[in-house]
Computed example of a mutant assay.
Amino acid sequence: MKEGLVIKSTGSWYTVKTAEGEIHNCRIKGKFRMEGIRTTNPIAVGDMVDFESNKDAEVIVGIHDRKNYIIRKSSNLSKRSQIIASNVDQAFLIVTVNYPLTTTTFIDRFLTAAEAYRIPVRLIFNKIDRYRPNDMVRLSELKNTYEKIGYKCFEISAKKEIHLDVIKETLKGKINLLSGHSGVGKSTLINAIQPGLDLKTGEISESHAQGKHTTTFSEMFELDFSGYIIDTPGIRGFGTIDMEKEEMSHFFPEIFKISKNCQFHNCSHIHEPGCAVKAAVEEGEISLSRYESYLGMILEDEDNKYRI
């Protein structure tokens, strides 16, 4: 029996790297498909696994306990989730104010999912070389919103390699998840940070101002300056999977902090009198866009909560 780190998953085959640097292509033991959380992929990039050889192939027979993981709605029609990656030290959401637009709704859903699974997040605002004056104003507004509540923000151009040194320093020595919509420059950024990978990059669809998918599965790459990057498929949306409505405010740090001053301990921050959160929104202490994201997530029905 050997153990190793899952560095690539295609759904049916898993690439596993041992501590000695050996690479093994493994299948999964069938029973894993019925165990644990209800997902389409019981094993994910970032998992530590045990595997053994049999006459036909090398087979994963055990999975080590995870310290965390992050999930999204599966791309199939069943109401199941897909584990994007596990055992992550920090996540980076790549955001574009334009070319294509990343909405605050999407940002907040990602941040909420990461908070729920105890994964620290940084925001990378990419393509600053393309931004017009009004784009730069919007960028400043977004940075102010998220830095105010404790999320570190970076302004970069992956294509022009602007401000990449600080990104490298932040990645160093850690297992890093990179995520974002298709077209935000994720593969371009990884290629600039780790030359030689030559990841495929995609063009933006002019008709829809959206990126075309270039990554269809998660993969982990080792960094020359120490650490790993996990590249994920372009993600269109996150659902509030496995989150109780009563807990939703816990994953909005600024709402959770102020909610202690509400008149009722179980305040939903929607209609109750004496709600400190609603008062903070009116006074500008809590961003209106963040509050609207909270409302959207807490009020959506069971069907829509899984939408892509």
Rank of each mutant, 00 (worst) to 15 (best):
R72G: 03
L199V: 00
V277S: 00
K143F: 02
G36D: 01
K278F: 01
I149N: 03
N98Y: 14
A114F: 00
K186V: 11
V49W: 11
G296M: 08
E169Y: 05
R118S: 15
L77W: 07
M136R: 15
I107W: 07
T145M: 12
T215P: 05
I229R: 06
I83Y: 01
T103P: 06
R236Y: 11
S86H: 02
Y228A: 06
K257E: 02
I71H: 06
E222Q: 09
K159D: 09
E254S: 14
E169T: 11
F110P: 04
E22C: 09
Y99N: 15
I308M: 05
N76T: 12
K148P: 00
S182T: 13
Y228F: 13
E203V: 12
N304C: 07
P195C: 04
E35V: 11
R118K: 15
S78M: 11
L177H: 09
F217H: 14
R27P: 00
L223Q: 10
M248F: 01
C153L: 09
P120H: 00
F264S: 04
Y228E: 05
A114E: 00
M297H: 04
Q90G: 00
M297R: 06
M48Y: 11
D224M: 06
F217V: 09
I149P: 04
S81C: 08
K159S: 11
E300D: 03
I63N: 01
I270W: 03
S75W: 05
L111G: 10
S289C: 03
L199W: 01
I235R: 05
G284Q: 10
R38W: 12
I204N: 04
I167H: 04
H64D: 00
Q194R: 04
G274I: 12
Y117V: 05
F106E: 02
I229C: 02
L171D: 00
I298D: 03
